[in-house]
């Protein structure tokens, strides 16, 4: 177990007053709270920050911590003195370090059911939320997924034990969408005593696709075409999530022109989204002498001002 310097975690001086500690906590919480942060380590960072704040905001806990801090240094191995005893119980999921100082996870107000012996209590297990990346193709039909995650685990005195690794085979229903949460009842952390297990929440994240962009249940694919295809019109074989289709491109299709392919988007609860094909004109990377001559004759013969928009202003 490593020593945690709570002052360092909050970025405050060891003699900081409560107001400074509170301000530091709130500033860091805004930055790293998993509900608002985009930082990929936000959850772990916020856990440290919340733990540091829990220890330092309470004058009695802080006094105990300051006493112990004389023996430890941040990041170094640490064991509390053998005769160390704390009178606290807390209701949050904090580190072993925190628990070694302030005691183990205690009964939560409003949730606990004491048995006759006071040290034994029953507590509902923790709810776990985990992100589940889904490929667009996987939303087309019910999809079997194997997911693995870690569950925090406590003994009946509330001491934290090693995490349990759990693997589940889950059927993800057709038509799930970005940001959706799926609750799996009873698949979260095990309860303490006779407490029920917590739940597992799967937070659906659609993996970015190399070809298709997602907007709600509609998809967009960019269709590169040559200048002559753009002018003369053409038939293009366009990939969709379920096989390719032939799309007729009318003559004089500009870059940005959008064609709707009905029902080839993502499935939803009420039907299916559409696929939009967006034209993008591309030119050959290089031109040989002969090609250049063709372009030159075009430029001489065709009257066209591509910047006519500019002269209007």
């Amino acid at each position: 177990m490593d020593f945690k310097d709570y002052y360092k975690i909050l970025g405050v001086e060891p003699d900081a007053d409560l107001k400074a500690i509170k301000t530091a906590y709130r500033r860091l919480a805004r930055k790293y709270h998993p509900d608002v942060s985009e930082d990929k380590d936000a959850e772990a960072k916020f856990k440290d920050i919340a733990e540091a704040y829990a220890a330092l905001k309470d004058p009695e806990k802080r006094a105990e911590y300051d006493e112990l801090r004389k023996y430890g240094q941040h990041g170094q191995r640490f064991e509390p003195p053998p005769d160390w005893q704390s009178s606290f119980q807390h209701d949050d999921d904090f580190s072993d370090f925190f628990e070694s100082i302030f005691g183990s996870r205690g009964p939560r107000a409003g949730r606990q059911q004491y048995t006759q012996r006071e040290t034994h209590f029953n507590l509902r297990g923790q709810d776990i939320e985990t992100e589940l990346p889904i490929f667009l193709e996987e939303t087309l039909a019910d999809e079997r997924k194997t997911i693995s995650y870690h569950l925090p685990h406590y003994d009946k005195e509330g001491r934290r034990l090693a995490d349990i690794k759990k693997t589940l085979n889950v059927k993800i229903p057709k038509g799930v969408s970005e940001g959706e949460r799926i609750r799996l009842k009873g698949q979260g952390g095990p309860g303490i005593g006779t407490g029920a297990s917590g739940d597992l929440y799967l937070h659906i994240r659609l993996v970015p696709h190399p070809l298709f962009d997602v907007e709600g249940h509609n998809l967009t694919i960019t269709v590169p075409i040559s200048p002559w295809e753009a002018v003369l019109g053409t038939k293009v074989e366009v990939p969709t999530l379920s096989g390719s289709i032939n799309l007729t491109l009318p003559p004089n299709s500009q870059t940005g022109k959008r064609l709707r392919i009905k029902g080839k988007g993502l499935p939803s609860k009420t039907g299916s989204g559409d696929l939009y094909a967006v034209v993008k004109i591309v030119i050959p990377e290089r031109s040989d002498e002969e090609t250049k001559k063709i372009w030159e004759s075009l430029s001489k013969k065709i009257k066209f001002n591509p910047r006519s928009e500019w002269s209007k202003t």
Binding site: R144, L168, N169, V170, K171, I172, P173, V176, E180, I182, R183, L184, Q187, L202
Partner: peptide
Amino acid sequence: MIEASVTVK
């Protein structure tokens, strides 16, 4: 196999 249901209310 656990059925992940989004329709539970």
